[in-house]
């Protein structure tokens, strides 16, 4: 564990040294801070926009932070040849991959936590000194959604170049966001469409599961049991991330570097 921790620790330090990380964070906070500008709308509208825009800003900034951080974590070590130094120590490849993932994941956590706190504080003042605990659920699920994305990017980074990885991760994130569309496809009358729907639905990570904005911003659009739903989403993220990391380790183990 200490080996994984050492790799993760180093990864976080290195990630935080990169200016692009801070730029995304500043953009995210700026977007969240823009929310109160919509106060000229009717009270209901302005709160709906404030919440949806805040959650979207966190997701957008977190999305780019995750992809940009994770696509470089392994290729950069190979390009700079520092990987030889690391692997010449008593570091197993799986420990290296897990350390990189945990480091990247913790970097994303710092980012989301910072934006989440700004968002909740702003909501507290905008809602007349009332807390918005339901928004915490939104932030938590965004975080686990990005954890899954981080695992996906790490997986691609074991065999793809950063540019290819960027488009692959981004593309699968988009397809995975269409959960309800692929869900509908699975029951299509066309057998080909139904098969394609099933493949996408069960094999690709379903990022759309984590989008609960409807339930958070519109009264009455409640998910059957929110607490159970969130717990299941977290379990899904952990299981799917484990699968992706296992494949990543398999590939990285077989790879000549």
């Amino acid at each position: 564990m200490s080996v994984i921790y050492a790799v993760a620790h180093q990864t976080v330090r290195e990630a935080l040294r990169r200016r692009i990380m801070w730029i995304f964070l500043i953009i995210g906070v700026f977007l969240i801070a823009l929310g109160p500008v919509f106060g000229f709308l009717s009270p209901r509208d302005s709160l709906v926009i404030l919440k949806s825009l805040g959650l979207a800003a966190i997701l957008l900034a977190g999305l780019f932070t995750t992809i940009v951080t994770c696509i470089y974590l392994i290729p950069v070590e190979i390009d700079r040849r520092t990987i030889y130094t690391v692997l010449s120590k008593p570091v197993q490849r799986y420990q290296f991959v897990l350390g990189k993932f945990i480091g990247g994941f913790f970097t994303v956590f710092i980012n989301i936590a910072a934006m989440g706190i700004v968002f909740l504080v702003m909501l507290y003042f905008q809602m007349g000194h009332h807390l918005a605990p339901d928004m915490v659920e939104g932030v938590v699920l965004t975080f686990f959604q990005l954890m899954l994305l981080a695992a996906l990017s790490i997986f691609f980074s074991t065999f793809a170049t950063p540019v290819v990885n960027f488009f692959l991760s981004f593309g699968i994130f988009m397809v995975g966001n269409l959960t309800s569309v692929t869900d509908t496809l699975t029951t299509s009358k066309s057998p080909i469409a139904a098969l394609a729907g099933r493949i996408i639905y069960y094999l690709l990570p379903q990022f759309g599961n984590f989008n609960i904005m409807n339930s958070l911003i519109h009264p009455g659009q409640n998910i059957t049991n929110m607490q159970v739903y969130i717990r299941n989403c977290i379990v899904y993220a952990i299981i799917y991330s484990s699968v992706l990391l296992a494949i990543a380790i398999l590939i990285f183990d077989s790879r000549e570097v």
Binding site: S180, D183, Q221, Y236, V243, A246
Partner: peptide, 29 residues
């Protein structure tokens, strides 16, 4: 891990889908 994980992920996905509000299931998107 991969095989068991994918099966478990599929099971969890099946649990998650009906828990979402019905509007998501009617092909509105």
């Amino acid at each position: 891990i991969i095989v068991v994980g994918l099966i478990l992920a599929g099971i969890v996905q099946n649990v998650l889908a009906p828990a979402r509000n019905k509007e998501q299931d009617e092909g509105h998107e």
